[in-house]
Design a protein around this nucleic acid. Structure first.
Length: 112
DNA sequence: GTGTTGACCCCAA
DNA sequence: TTTGGGGCCAACA
């Protein structure tokens, strides 16, 4: 409300809060911003987040099934997977193993 | 002001 | 189980 920052910038701020070794979803970020129907925009915001100066862990954002839908936007086919595995996450078939356990919901985990 | 584009999501069959 | 179609809306041309 009355926020003049771009939607992308707001998405980036939330994404920076995702703990190492955890993941969240496009939809969850959208919901946390009060724009639950704008999940596609969250994905678009991740394309802009590719700039390392922004320090946005875009690899920790996956779709609602734990699928690595954004992997094609990285330099190599398995870079996203490697980044996650470096944080202790196991990937099977382009999906996050134990997704439910590793899922970090900005709404329930942030404000309590 | 209009049209197009998506790193999505939901639901029906 | 897997597909396919419709809806969504911020940003950009």
């Amino acid at each position: 409300m009355g926020d003049t920052r771009s939607f992308y910038e707001q998405v980036h701020q939330i994404a920076r809060l995702i703990p190492k070794g955890r993941v969240t979803t496009y939809g969850a970020i959208a919901k946390a911003l009060g724009a639950s129907r704008s999940s596609r925009m969250v994905g678009t915001a991740m394309i802009h987040a590719h700039d390392p100066r922004l320090k946005v862990p875009a690899h920790r954002v996956v779709n609602r099934n734990g699928l690595l839908t954004g992997k094609h936007h990285y330099d190599t086919q398995n870079q996203m997977q490697e980044l996650l595995e470096n944080e202790g996450i196991t990937i099977e078939d382009d999906k996050v193993k134990d997704f439910k356990k590793l899922f970090w919901d900005p709404l329930t985990e942030l404000l309590y």
